[in-house]
Every structure is written in C-alpha cells, then in structure tokens.
C-alpha cells in the first residue's frame, strides 16, 4: 500500500511538470500564431470596426499586453481554477468544457465499452481458432480497419443508414427545431447510435490484435498443454485458463487508449455535428478562440493522464507479479 501511494505521488508530480510545460508551450505556440485573435473574434464585420474599437476589444481581452504579461495573467488565473472566457461562446471556458464533456462522455464511454467488448471477443475467437480461415478473416479485417479513415466510416454510415435507409437522423445531438424540454430520451439515443458506432470502430482493431497475440502466447504455455492433455478444449479451456490471463492486458490497453478515443471523438463529432468537446476543439481552432483551445488542451491532457494512471493502477492492483516486483 505504501508503494502504491508513492507510485501515485510520483506519477502526479510528473503529470504536474508535464502540465506546466504544456501550458508554456501551448501559450508560446498560440502567441506566435499569425491568426489575429481580434479578427477571429469580430469575424466578417471586420471592415466596420474602426481602429479605436479595435483597441478597445484588444484591451478588453488583454491582447494589448506583451505575450509574457498575458501568460503571467492567464497562468495565475488558471492556478486559481479560472480558465478565462471563451470568445465564441462568451461564457467561462470551464462551463463550456464541462457542458460539452457531458455530451461527449456518453458518446465516448459507449463507444469505449463497445470497442472493448467486440475487440476482445473477436480477438479471443481468432486466437482459439488460430490459423483457420476464421483467424485469417479476423486478422485481415482488423488490419484493414486499422488503416481506414474514421471520418470515412462515419460518412459511409451516414450515407447508408441516414440518407439511404433513413433509419437515423443525419446529425446533431438533438432533433433540429425542437425546444430543449421537448427532446425525449429516445431522440437522444437515436442521435447517439451512429456516432457511437463510428467511434467504436477505432479501438476494435487494436484491442483484437493485442488480445489475439496474448492469448496465443498463453495457449502455448505448459499449463494449457497440461489442461489439453487432461481433455479440456474449446470454450471450457478458454474460460478456465485463458480468460483471466488475457482480460487484464486487454482492460489495461483499453484504458491506455484514452488518447486515441479523444482524437477519434474530435473526428466523429465533426462528421455528425454532435455538440461535444471534439467539435468544440475544432471550432476553437477554426475561429481562433484562444482561451477555449488552451482549456481543451489542458483538459485533454488530464483526461489522457487519468486513463494511463488507471491502466497502471489496475495492473498493480490485480496482477500480483507486478505488485510484488520492483517496477517503477
């Protein structure tokens, strides 16, 4: 237990050092951007804004100061938990992120579970049936899936299920032209299905190929050979000797894939105009919303960090070999 606390502490210190560096680098990058934040803020009305108004806007957002002063101000406010005000939504960044993240977390967690379960099942089947046509098909399918652009899958789903078969709506999180109170859970679910399927496609290949490899290793071990000699085979063999050994790496891998999940959500949400954090990232980038973009960079880093930490902890909690060993 003492080891555990030390481990978490060490990880957290590293994370804090990374976060500080990340803040500095992101801020530097953005302050050298040729995109004029005032122009991005005003948009098409730029012609009608005089130099005085321009100065006022710059003063209001603190853009008339040097990058260093801006950074010190922004940094000290971030330390107090204030991420600033979003330029496109005109509301605190923290509010926007939490609101958008609530939308995204439903999408992400469903897709995450789905890809984990499907990937694990087909990976296990492939390993149990190694070198048969089933194995070859699954392997081929996984490799192909891994080189398929996510947004293209999303477009295909839209074409087939939304435009052609008309089963699902084309996009957005809720039906268009309906008041927020009138939106039913059914509507929301209907709008969730296609983005979830698209997003889950990303993780499947990774987890399936990994599970297959692990299970093949396990199946060639001595204790499996002994079990086979006793007459165990098929599903019973997998249930008794394979499952527990192979589930742990799979779960860990799934937690360590938070980074790809977030990246995939950016794309899936753009294709389906789903009002989540990914779409907000793209909007912030396209329309030059510096405070929101910085907030999302920090948030995504924490999100990925939590995933990796959970993966590490599961390994240490569940696997006695690592708990006892001198890892760190």
């Amino acid at each position: 237990m003492k080891n555990m606390i030390k481990f978490i502490l060490k990880k957290t210190i590293r994370m804090v050092s990374l976060l500080i560096a990340l803040c500095i680098i992101s801020f530097l990058l953005i302050s050298y951007s040729p995109i004029d934040p005032i122009q991005a803020y005003v948009g098409a009305d730029m012609m009608r804004v005089g130099p005085e108004q321009r100065d006022k806007i710059a003063e209001y957002w603190g853009l008339d100061q040097s990058p260093l002063e801006q950074f010190v101000q922004w940094g000290s406010r971030v330390l107090q938990g204030d991420l600033g005000t979003s330029m496109i939504y005109r509301r605190p960044v923290a509010d926007i992120i939490s609101e958008k993240f609530l939308n995204s977390i439903i999408l992400m967690s469903l897709a995450w579970l789905l890809s984990g379960i499907i990937g694990f099942i087909i990976g296990s089947i492939a390993a149990m049936k190694k070198d048969t046509w089933i194995d070859r098909t699954i392997k081929w399918y996984c490799y192909t899936l891994a080189s398929t652009p996510t947004f293209w899958i999303g477009l295909l789903f839209l074409m087939i299920f939304a435009a052609w078969l008309d089963w699902f709506p084309i996009g957005l999180g809720v039906p268009a032209g309906v008041i927020a109170e009138d939106v039913t859970i059914g509507d929301r679910i209907k709008h969730l299905i296609l983005p979830t399927l698209t997003l889950s496609m990303i993780g499947i290949a990774n987890i399936a190929l990994h599970t297959r490899q692990k299970l093949i290793d396990i199946l060639s071990s001595d204790y499996v050979l002994f079990a086979k000699a006793r007459g165990e085979k098929g599903f019973v063999l997998f249930w008794r000797h394979g499952l527990r050994n192979v589930a742990l790496p799979a779960i860990t891998l799934q937690f360590a894939a938070f980074s790809e999940l977030f990246g995939g959500a950016v794309i899936a949400e753009t294709v389906f105009s789903y009002p989540g954090l990914g779409q907000a990232t793209v909007e912030a980038g396209l329309r030059g919303d510096v405070p929101l973009l910085l907030g999302i960079v920090i948030f995504s880093a924490i999100f990925v960090f939590i995933g990796n930490l959970v993966a590490d902890l599961i390994y240490r909690l569940v696997d006695p070999r690592i708990r006892e060993g001198k890892f760190l």
Partner: peptide, 25 residues
C-alpha cells in the same frame, strides 16, 4: 523520456490542431 511523455500526453489530433493554429494552417 520526459519529452516523449510530453508529446504523448495530449491526443495527437489536439496537438495537430494546436500546431496548425499556431502556424496559421
């Protein structure tokens, strides 16, 4: 190894958006 961690700590796509933004696309 700290640098490696730094670049892996943010999703690739977010980093790409950030860098593309910084260089003006």
């Amino acid at each position: 190894s700290w640098l490696v961690d730094l670049f892996l700590s943010v999703p690739h796509l977010v980093t790409l958006i950030l860098i593309a933004f910084a260089l003006g696309g």
